[in-house]
Amino acid sequence: MGNQNRTTASSFNDGLCTIWDSMDGEAPAKVYENLRYREEIVGAVRYFAAKQAQVRLSRSISVPMVQGVNAGQFVEIRQAGKPLLYQIEQAQHMRGDDPAHPGCPYIKLSLAALSMAQEAGWYGGI
Rank of each mutant, 00 (worst) to 15 (best):
P105A: 10
Q67F: 02
E89P: 00
A71K: 15
V55T: 13
T7C: 12
A113Q: 13
I19M: 08
A113F: 13
Y32T: 01
A27H: 08
P64F: 01
A117Q: 15
E40Y: 11
Y123T: 00
S115H: 08
D21H: 06
D14P: 12
G121T: 14
P102I: 06
K108H: 04
W122R: 02
E33C: 07
Q92D: 09
T18I: 03
M116A: 12
V55L: 15
A91H: 10
S11L: 10
P64R: 06
G81K: 02
E119A: 13
Q87C: 10
S115A: 15
A71Y: 04
Q87L: 12
M65E: 10
G103H: 03
Q87P: 03
L111G: 00
A120N: 13
I77Q: 03
Q54R: 15
H101Q: 07
A9K: 15
E89A: 14
Q73R: 06
T8V: 09
M94S: 06
V31N: 04
R36L: 03
I41N: 07
V75G: 03
M23N: 13
W20D: 00
A53M: 14
E39F: 06
T8S: 07
G96L: 02
I77A: 01
A120V: 14
E89H: 13
Q52C: 02
E89C: 13
V42A: 10
P64H: 05
I61T: 02
K51N: 12
Q52P: 00
H101V: 09
G124P: 03
A112F: 02
G2F: 09
A50E: 11
N13C: 05
Q87M: 12
G81C: 10
E40Q: 15
Q4N: 10
R6I: 02
R78D: 11
K51D: 08
R6S: 08
D14R: 06
M65D: 11
A50V: 07
Q67G: 05
N3C: 10
E26N: 11
W20M: 09
E119L: 03
S115K: 07
R78V: 15
A27F: 09
P105R: 13
L109N: 01
Y47Q: 11
A44K: 09
Q67S: 09
E40I: 05
E33N: 09
S58A: 12
G68R: 01
Q52M: 11
S10K: 07
L16M: 05
V63L: 03
V69G: 08
E33S: 15
I41W: 04
D98I: 13
N3M: 05
A71F: 03
Q67W: 03
A49G: 04
I126N: 12
D24K: 05
E89L: 12
A44P: 00
K30L: 07
A44M: 10
P83I: 00
A117T: 10
D14W: 07
A29L: 14
D14F: 06
M65A: 13
T7N: 14
I41G: 01
P28G: 03
A71M: 14
Y106I: 08
A91Q: 08
Y123N: 11
G25A: 04
G125T: 14
A91G: 06
Y123G: 00
F74S: 00
I107T: 13
Q52Y: 06
